[in-house]
């Protein structure tokens, strides 16, 4: 083999290497570009635009002049607007706290019970999850029918068992409307945290629980000292998801109450307020894209910041399992 031909082959080698590298780049671009573009155009671009829109005055669909933080001032400090904002925010906080206690508390109890694989384990699991797969619209309307003051099954049942005084117009009273909706939400979603918790418990090695049992711990101590700390990652996720869900709460009050958070704005939420501000309604008047965008940015910043803080705090108590 002469040197010259080796040199030629070296050139061929370089060329084929370059060609293969280019082919690889092309192939990667083919795989990555469509999804990246999709996400850029339909998620990142609108999210970024929202920030931009919030600093302009809007006349319907037409962008007016730059007004700086004017829209933010309007939604935060104008007396009427600020009352709406505070009222809706307060309701969202109530929803979050209630769901944390009622929905996730119940889910934890159910998960701890199901983790012991009682007879009918599969059945219970499927039944608890059944409402989760249904549309909020179906659930909302269904319970709206059930809670109808006169014809609804709930009150018919209460009258049947001689509890007439309890047969209230549940969704019509400011005192009971929000609570009823929270319970409906719990009924709808409780299966989700239950099964996430259950999966987390199943992931804890059996040896650990058996070791604790040999150490003499009773079921309550095992749940408190072993299972609870080791299922921390699942708790973190559920808390964050509940938080995001609560502050995006829209469908249930929209369907069971109204766009105005009836009765008397007792079920108003940030989601409804945002929708009214952006697209117009009886109380908010015509659509206002500027104020709507400002509200959206504020809600986003709030949810984002809090999610990060909550995640940071909760993950600090998580323990790595080897």
């Amino acid at each position: 083999m002469s040197l010259a031909s080796d040199h030629d082959i070296d050139l061929i080698y370089q060329k084929s290497l370059r060609k293969r590298k280019n082919m690889r780049r092309l192939w990667l671009a083919f795989l990555l570009l469509p999804p990246i573009l999709m996400l850029l155009i339909f998620v990142f671009l609108p999210m970024a635009s929202a920030v931009l829109y919030s600093v302009y005055d809007w006349k319907g669909l037409v962008r007016g002049e730059f007004i700086g933080l004017g829209n933010y001032y309007d939604v935060l400090f104008k007396p009427r607007e600020s009352w709406f904002l505070f009222n809706a925010f307060k309701n969202n906080v109530v929803v979050f706290i209630s769901l944390m206690i009622v929905q996730n508390g119940l889910a934890l109890v159910l998960a701890l019970l199901l983790a012991r694989k009682p007879a009918g384990y599969r059945f219970y699991q499927v039944v608890i999850f059944l409402p989760v797969i249904l549309s909020t619209v179906i659930i909302g309307f269904q319970w709206k029918l059930f809670l109808n003051p006169i014809f609804g099954l709930v009150n018919k049942f209460l009258r049947m068992v001689d509890l007439d005084m309890w047969a209230l117009p549940w969704l019509g009273l400011p005192e009971t409307a929000l609570g009823s909706m929270i319970l409906v939400n719990t009924w709808h979603w409780v299966g989700f945290p239950t099964l996430v918790f259950l999966a987390a418990i199943h992931r804890i090695p059996k040896d650990l629980i058996e070791a604790a049992r040999l150490d003499g711990a009773n079921e309550w101590r095992i749940a408190r000292d072993i299972i609870w700390p080791l299922m921390a990652p699942a708790v973190t996720i559920i808390v964050v998801l509940t938080f995001i869900g609560s502050f995006n709460w829209f469908e249930i009050p929209f369907i069971m109450g109204s766009l105005e958070g009836s009765p008397a704005y007792s079920t108003d939420t940030l989601g409804l307020l945002f929708y009214r501000t952006a697209f117009g309604s009886v109380s908010a008047g015509g659509s206002n894209f500027g104020a709507g965008s400002a509200l959206a940015v504020l809600i986003f910043i709030f949810i984002f910041t809090f999610s990060i803080i909550v995640t940071k705090y909760l993950t600090s108590r998580e323990i790595e399992m080897g």
Partner: peptide, 9 residues
């Protein structure tokens, strides 16, 4: 990113 909040753009 909660896309609902970007509904206007």
């Amino acid at each position: 990113l909660p896309l609902r909040l970007a509904i206007i753009p």
